[in-house]
Computed example of a mutant assay.
Amino acid sequence: MRYIKDIPNVHLKIGLYQWNSKYIIKVESGMYEQTFKIDDYEVTDTNELERCIDETFISAVQGRFDEMHNDFFEALKRNNVLF
């Protein structure tokens, strides 16, 4: 996987990569991550991808991170890993 660049964000770590004829946007928050893949022929350049990472997208991603955390925390409690 070839690293292209980081996309600045105050709350999340966002990296842009290229691998296997796809662009990969990797978004990280603490111990969780989300990845989004798009065929490289679908966009003319990486600037198009960066424009897609707008406030609406970031808000949806953050909401998903909250759901991921809640799901994992509940699984830990349900299985007596956390008390």
Rank of each mutant, 00 (worst) to 15 (best):
M1Y: 10
M1I: 11
M1C: 02
Y3S: 08
Y3W: 13
Y3L: 09
K5S: 02
I7M: 00
P8F: 01
P8Y: 01
N9I: 05
V10L: 04
V10C: 04
H11A: 03
H11Q: 03
L12M: 09
L12V: 06
K13Y: 03
I14L: 07
G15W: 02
Q18C: 14
Q18T: 14
Q18M: 13
W19L: 13
W19Y: 14
N20V: 09
K22W: 00
K22P: 05
Y23D: 03
Y23K: 08
I24G: 00
I25H: 00
I25G: 00
V27G: 01
E28T: 10
E28A: 08
S29T: 05
M31A: 08
M31Q: 04
Y32M: 13
Y32E: 04
Y32H: 09
E33G: 03
E33L: 13
Q34W: 04
Q34N: 07
T35M: 09
T35A: 02
T35I: 11
F36W: 09
F36M: 01
K37E: 01
K37W: 06
K37N: 05
D39H: 11
D39T: 04
D40N: 07
Y41R: 07
Y41N: 07
E42F: 15
E42A: 06
T44R: 11
N47T: 08
N47Y: 06
L49W: 05
L49V: 14
L49M: 09
C52K: 12
C52D: 05
I53H: 09
D54I: 11
D54F: 10
E55I: 13
E55Y: 06
F57V: 12
S59I: 14
S59T: 15
A60G: 03
V61D: 02
Q62W: 12
G63T: 13
R64E: 14
F65C: 05
D66Q: 07
D66H: 08
E67W: 07
M68W: 09
M68C: 12
N70C: 06
D71F: 12
F72H: 11
F73N: 03
E74Y: 12
E74M: 12
A75I: 14
A75W: 12
L76G: 03
R78C: 06
R78T: 08
R78K: 14
N79Y: 15
N80H: 15
V81W: 15
F83C: 11
F83Q: 07
